[in-house]
Design a protein around this nucleic acid. Structure first.
Lengths: 339, 339
DNA sequence: TTGAAAGCGCTAACAT
DNA sequence: ATGTTAGCGCTTTCAA
């Protein structure tokens, strides 16, 4: 155990007990193999005997690597934050924390505001930025300092020296999957799928819209993308969308749980029955709180995503080449409980 | 931003620019008020100008405080771990991480095994131990080193010097609440409430059993506590319990989601209808994945609990007196969706 | 009120 | 192959 309290055994104690110098001990513990195997064994056995654990703080200070990675929690704006982003971040954080510890890293949630990353007390070896927008302030700041970055969501940069890896869900496959499913299950005489997204143009949204439009084009349907006007609530936008009538809109795919909830509420108000008169699908965690059993889920597992991001970042920090990651998304039909 | 990469400005740069010594700068930034307000202002303004942020690693090394707190993830044993503990821990971790960062602390998930805490790489200022059992190895280890500890769940120690604070749910109030509710809703001619718990005698289980027995005694019912035999699965135990018949058992309170799921499965097998023939209640997160709408929930919010634990620990670390915390639990009736 | 010096635990040049 | 020296950024006596 490397605890703080109590008199811990340090490199010096081991050095003394083993009758060697501190640097030899250090050398044995790190650059495995420049010491004679005799001393090596000896030092190691003494170390084990004394219960020596290198103090990471010392290592960190000396090497400039803190073994702490940040998970950037973007600027929070009210309702949407609480409903969707906060739960999502929590899961990302938890997944990243559990993965990180396996590799000897700790997690620091790193809040950001309109000025970018706010004070993160511990120096960060790298960061995970969730859902950046193009030219994201936090990403650009980190890029500028040469920090290693993982984005959960696509990100374009011209910075060729960047240590930046993206992790994103494969909407190019997922969206057709869910639209095909909706069409196959559709009871309407004419299938009319709409897309309901938010105003924030992060890559997730952009990818979703692109895939939707492409599917419509290929399948010969007219694309209908609805976005709340500035200052319009998701619920209002949903009302407007559904007011077109159940012949104009027979199915809606929602960007996330927030928009899905708005659709359900608007449908209830208008006396539209789901899924009989209106099919609803949503990208989100089918196993999450208040998951809507009447909706089709394009299942996202944020805990796993968090773990994946942490793994990628750590791999990057260890000096490996890491390529962008595209996550598969699975389809969970309506009324199906997820184990 | 206190990032690692790039040439950060340190105490020396500030000292030089301000024309004072490093120790004066340090003094200004820490023991607010031993420098003349003139120098103070000056140093602060130069510091701000240069964007100086104390390097926590340096501080930590010198002061022996790492500003990292551990969340101990207990020994994981297979199925129960995945179903109940892992989700619970995740939420605790996320809640603790978000709370911690507000106070300048990072979180390290700290895995433990049968030998206690395994290597946690960063030195910990304190730990949060979830659901310790009496004489818990991890708790005792930490106690021995004088580390600050928060237990999520009651814990008894004779160590008077201990910096140990417990955070627990108020089962003494919660259990009567849920049993009263079940009794009031009961359709059976004779109300017969059973309790279904696990073999692990952590304080949460013990508290639950105690409160249940007391309620039965006061209300004049016979107490019936069911625990899986060693090597018996929860499902098997549930089968045995329900096999007694719907007149012998009209209601079951389950310790957690694992036991609740077992009851539901066994009931389905036996053709017992819930809640008509059998009332089921469970202590857990009513807003969680796969929450059972037919069950009555004694609602636990692990994210909030995690935050509370972190807050208590940090307060302890800052040298405050912190008293044990008892969390209220609320009742969520069956078939009610939680916002 | 301020500064000089020592050192937290460790690693990396450099010397031997 | 091993030891010596210096110093990462900071705090903390202790002296001025």
């Amino acid at each position: 155990m490397s605890m703080t309290a109590g008199k811990r055994v340090g490199i010096k104690q081991v050095a003394e007990a083993a009758g060697v110098s501190a640097s030899t001990v250090s050398q044995v513990y790190n650059h495995k193999g420049e010491a004679s195997s005799a001393t090596r064994e000896h030092v190691l056995s003494i170390g084990a005997q004394l219960g020596y654990r290198p103090n990471v703080l010392g290592q960190a200070l000396r090497s400039g690597r803190s073994r702490v990675i940040g998970v950037v929690v973007s600027y929070r704006d009210s309702a949407v934050w609480d409903q969707t982003y906060l739960p999502y971040y929590r899961n990302i954080i938890a997944g990243a924390a559990i993965e990180a510890v396996e590799h000897g890293y700790a997690i620091s949630a790193a809040p950001s505001n309109e000025h970018g990353l706010t004070d993160t007390f511990l120096p960060l070896d790298g960061v995970i930025v969730v859902d950046p927008i193009p030219g994201d302030l936090v990403v650009e700041q980190c890029l500028a300092t040469g920090m290693a970055i993982i984005t959960d969501g696509g990100y374009e940069t011209s910075n060729s020296a960047a240590r930046l890896v993206t992790v994103r869900s494969d909407m190019d496959k997922g969206i057709p999957k869910v639209l095909d499913h909706l069409q196959a299950e559709s009871a309407a005489s004419v299938f009319r799928p709409a897309l309901f997204v938010g105003p924030r143009l992060d890559s997730y949204t952009v990818d979703t819209i692109r895939a939707y439009k492409k599917w419509c084009e290929v399948a010969g349907f007219e694309a209908a993308v609805t976005t709340p006007e500035p200052s319009q609530s998701p619920l209002d936008a949903a009302r407007t969308l559904l007011a077109r009538g159940i012949r104009a809109v027979t199915a809606v795919h929602c960007l996330n749980e927030t928009y899905c909830a708005a659709i359900f509420e608007a449908a209830a108000e208008l006396g539209i029955s789901i899924p009989d008169e209106l099919q609803v699908s949503v990208a989100g965690n089918a196993a999450a709180m208040g998951a809507e059993r009447r909706a089709v889920y394009l299942n996202l597992d944020p805990v796993e995503t968090g773990a994946r991001c942490a793994r990628a970042l750590i791999s990057l920090l260890e000096g490996n080449d890491v390529t962008d990651i595209v996550e598969e998304v699975t389809l969970v039909p309506a009324s199906q409980v997820v184990g």
